[in-house]
Simulated assay, not measured.
Amino acid sequence: MSLKWWRSTGEERAAATADPAAPAGPSGSGATAPEPDGSDGSDGSDGSDGKQDTEQDSTRDTATAEVVAAEQDHEYAELPTEAPRTGPLSPLPAPLLTGVPTGLPGMRADGGLLRGRWIAAASLTGTSHLLHGTSGQDVYRYTATHDGSGLVLVVCDGLGSRPETAQTGAGLLASYLCEAAAHITGQLMARAPQDVLREVLATGNAAVRRHRAAVLEPLTDSDLASTVAVCWLPLPAEGDGDGDGGSEEYRALPGHAVRVGDCNVFTLAGGRYEAPFPAACEGPANVVTAYLPCEDAARVAEYAPVALAGVDAVVVTTDGLAIDLFDSPSVRTWLASRWSVPCGPARMLDSLRYRRQGSHDDRTALITWSAPVGHTPRLEP
């Protein structure tokens, strides 16, 4: 078992109104947790006139303003954001950059068309790293298969217990997995998708181990350990359908995902989330029992089909963001609104700038929208 990052045991109190964007847990129902709305636990539904709630809201607004003012007291400028702030928060000091030569950039973002589908991604280094001057460890990659049958989305999350090397393993693994997945054919996926994706994991895993032995001695597999999620999504054949997303046969095709560890996949439709994999493990410490590279990648892999009928977007995330989606109604609502249209890189970065009590891990989201290029909404400026 390897420790990834320490997580607060505090939970958000549930919103007083029904949440329209609750993600599905293992049973398919929305997994929600309480969201803080006042020290006395009142939700305004006890017949009171709401005055106390108004006073509590005013107090929270004042506290948030004080935190923002304290953060802006540093001698550098940052753009404002409308991203929400949830729970009691302390002002953040100026972020510390890592001196580790293997450190990753603190912010990465992409947005654009790939084979007629809009893809956007963003990765932000977590506050736990910024406070201590260590590197973030999330990596994302994407590709299209050589035969044009599908998109491949990959996220990897290096284990925090290896602060100087795990991000190197995450980057290597993500790149090797994309290289292996590019050779997937639609025919193979139609026959045995689970076997195909497990083989992709095994191929990428073996490549990382060969690289380590040839270039990175004396590092061990655990020095490069990371969790991973790979998602394959079908693309319509060229000329298939009338330009509205392909034929009926294509639109009935599912996607497929495989993971090792606690990265996750979500679908978003009409502001609601579904999760083919279960929520990340609970507890004060996030402990993973499976990661790559390892001796037998296929044995530790977990497979799930991804239903795409009526889906607006597919989101692949590392666990830092997945936990916030499972546990926080405010985060779910905020991200559903930001991701309701295809995002450019700056919008994707801003979507992850929310603050939430106890949320300190790196945040990474890799998204593709279902609308084809001819029906992609105009991006907001």
Rank of each mutant, 00 (worst) to 15 (best):
M1V: 15
L3I: 15
W5V: 02
G10H: 09
R13G: 10
A14P: 05
A15R: 05
A15D: 03
A16T: 06
T17D: 14
A18R: 05
A21Y: 03
G25W: 03
S29V: 12
G30E: 03
T32S: 02
P34W: 05
E35D: 06
D37R: 10
S39N: 14
S42Y: 03
G44N: 08
D46H: 03
T54R: 08
E55S: 04
V68G: 00
L79N: 10
P80Q: 09
P80H: 06
P80N: 14
R85A: 15
R85E: 10
L89T: 09
A94W: 11
P95D: 13
P95Y: 06
T98D: 06
G99S: 08
P101C: 12
G106L: 08
I119P: 09
A120W: 00
A121V: 10
L131D: 04
S135F: 04
G136F: 06
Q137T: 11
T145Y: 02
G148K: 06
S149A: 07
S149Q: 01
S149T: 06
L151F: 04
G158N: 01
G160K: 00
E164W: 14
T165C: 09
T168N: 01
G171A: 06
L173V: 04
L173Y: 04
S175Q: 13
Y176L: 13
L177P: 00
T185I: 04
G186C: 09
A190N: 10
A190I: 14
P193L: 10
V196F: 07
A206Y: 07
R209L: 07
R210E: 15
R212G: 01
A213C: 06
A213S: 02
A214E: 15
V215I: 15
V215W: 07
L219M: 09
D221A: 08
L224Y: 02
C231R: 07
P234E: 12
L235H: 05
D240A: 09
G245P: 06
S247R: 05
E249S: 13
L253Y: 00
H256G: 01
V260H: 03
N264K: 09
N264Y: 03
F266A: 08
G270H: 02
G270C: 08
G271D: 05
P276M: 07
P276T: 12
P278C: 05
E282I: 08
E282A: 12
G283M: 12
A285R: 12
N286C: 05
T289F: 14
A290I: 01
A290G: 00
E295Y: 01
D296T: 12
V300H: 04
E302R: 14
V306F: 08
A307W: 04
V311F: 06
A313R: 04
V315Y: 00
T317R: 02
T318I: 11
T318S: 11
D319F: 04
D319N: 11
D327C: 09
L335D: 02
L335P: 07
R338Y: 11
W339H: 15
S340W: 03
A346E: 13
L349G: 00
D362Q: 11
I367F: 01
V373P: 12
V373K: 08
T376D: 01
L379F: 02
E380L: 11
P381I: 05
